[in-house]
Simulated assay, not measured.
Amino acid sequence: MYVAVVGVGSPATNYDLIVDTGSSNTWVGASKSYTPTSTSQQTSDSVSVTESGSTGFSGTEYTDQVTLASGLVVSGQSIGVASTAKGFKDVDGILGLGPVDLTVGTLSPDTSSAIPTVVDNLFSQGSIPGHECSVYFEPITDSSGIQQNGQITFGGTDSSKFTGEITYAPITTTSPASNYWGVDASFSYGSGSDSTTILSATAGIVDSGTTLLPLATDAFNSFQKATGGVKDSATGLLSITSQQFGNMKSLYVTISDTVFELTPNALIWPRSLNSIIGGTAGSIYLIVTDNGSNSGSGLDFILGQKFMERFYTVFDTANQRVGFATTPFTDATSN
């Protein structure tokens, strides 16, 4: 997971928050307790958010000063303060960078109210020039799994972090992907005469809070057949041999008529981190997983962290679109 250190209050208490474009509530208290200060104000609302699976939190909504970086401070940001939290280990909560509509229904009794996100408030308070944020990740190379290798740009893009042009895709109209940073895309394995369609044009989301690359069950089955991967009981991931890896082809993701190539190296879990997922040293595991539903569900793929480690991503609220660009790490062989 990717974590940002975010200050809350004045003087600020620093919290380690997951950078999550698939969630929009910003909240603290999963590990380190919330410390009220002179800028803290408890609201009349309770708050409850269920993330994927069994993770989530419930507690009380506050407003407080939030410091994202030196000179980048949000006044009166609405934040959740957890009294209970499930599924969050060694982190304090979430920095929610998803669309604001995801917050509707999370408050009580104000169930119909949306909670402006940190990006919304930075823009409305005049702290950033554009109503957008951009996310840059690099593949992890440290065997501990802990390193500084990411950047969030609030209010625009950082041209030093990407190469070429940014391809923009409008938010999909297909529900439920349309509620998130959802785009339409198709997937194929291999190129030219050796190309195999994995997933025809369909809707999915871009979510930095998801580690891997889940595909609809039928698409996953096609990918498994094409690669020869075998389900590994210890990790739950597909495993391939060194020979299979040597013969492996790229997975091509087409978004807005632009093809983004995930090379064979980009499709494997970092081998230096095998022990973290319960894997065996030297084994080769694939990052493509089964999302549990056949295609046509309205959310047939998730472009998670491993995709975002290879492509710069722009989340443009003002124009309701998501942008993608290559980086110096798109073709890296670090895994």
Rank of each mutant, 00 (worst) to 15 (best):
residue 1 M to N: 07
residue 1 M to C: 10
residue 2 Y to N: 01
residue 3 V to P: 04
residue 5 V to F: 09
residue 5 V to A: 13
residue 12 A to T: 04
residue 12 A to K: 06
residue 16 D to Q: 11
residue 18 I to Q: 08
residue 19 V to Y: 06
residue 27 W to F: 10
residue 28 V to F: 01
residue 31 S to K: 11
residue 34 Y to T: 05
residue 36 P to C: 01
residue 39 T to N: 03
residue 46 S to G: 15
residue 46 S to K: 15
residue 47 V to F: 12
residue 49 V to G: 01
residue 49 V to Y: 06
residue 49 V to T: 08
residue 57 F to K: 00
residue 58 S to L: 06
residue 65 Q to W: 07
residue 69 A to S: 00
residue 70 S to C: 09
residue 75 S to D: 12
residue 76 G to M: 02
residue 77 Q to P: 06
residue 78 S to P: 04
residue 82 A to I: 14
residue 83 S to R: 14
residue 84 T to M: 11
residue 104 V to D: 14
residue 108 S to C: 14
residue 110 D to P: 08
residue 112 S to G: 12
residue 114 A to D: 07
residue 116 P to G: 06
residue 117 T to Q: 10
residue 121 N to D: 03
residue 127 S to W: 09
residue 129 P to R: 15
residue 130 G to Q: 13
residue 131 H to M: 13
residue 132 E to L: 09
residue 135 V to K: 13
residue 135 V to L: 06
residue 138 E to K: 03
residue 139 P to N: 03
residue 141 T to N: 08
residue 148 Q to I: 01
residue 150 G to V: 00
residue 152 I to Q: 05
residue 154 F to H: 12
residue 158 D to P: 02
residue 161 K to V: 10
residue 162 F to I: 10
residue 163 T to G: 12
residue 164 G to W: 03
residue 168 Y to Q: 12
residue 172 T to Q: 02
residue 174 T to I: 12
residue 177 A to Q: 08
residue 177 A to E: 08
residue 178 S to Q: 02
residue 186 S to M: 00
residue 190 G to S: 05
residue 190 G to T: 11
residue 196 T to E: 15
residue 196 T to F: 15
residue 200 S to W: 15
residue 202 T to Y: 01
residue 210 T to D: 04
residue 211 T to I: 07
residue 212 L to I: 05
residue 212 L to C: 06
residue 215 L to R: 01
residue 217 T to A: 03
residue 224 Q to K: 09
residue 227 T to D: 13
residue 231 K to C: 07
residue 232 D to V: 04
residue 235 T to N: 08
residue 239 S to H: 06
residue 240 I to G: 02
residue 243 Q to F: 02
residue 244 Q to Y: 11
residue 249 K to L: 12
residue 255 I to P: 02
residue 256 S to H: 02
residue 258 T to P: 06
residue 258 T to K: 12
residue 260 F to E: 14
residue 263 T to E: 02
residue 267 L to A: 11
residue 271 R to T: 08
residue 272 S to K: 04
residue 273 L to S: 00
residue 280 T to M: 09
residue 281 A to L: 05
residue 287 I to M: 01
residue 287 I to A: 09
residue 289 T to L: 14
residue 298 G to S: 12
residue 301 F to E: 00
residue 304 G to L: 02
residue 311 F to A: 06
residue 316 D to M: 04
residue 320 Q to R: 05
residue 328 P to L: 00
residue 329 F to C: 10
residue 331 D to S: 02
residue 333 T to G: 05
residue 333 T to V: 10
residue 334 S to Q: 02
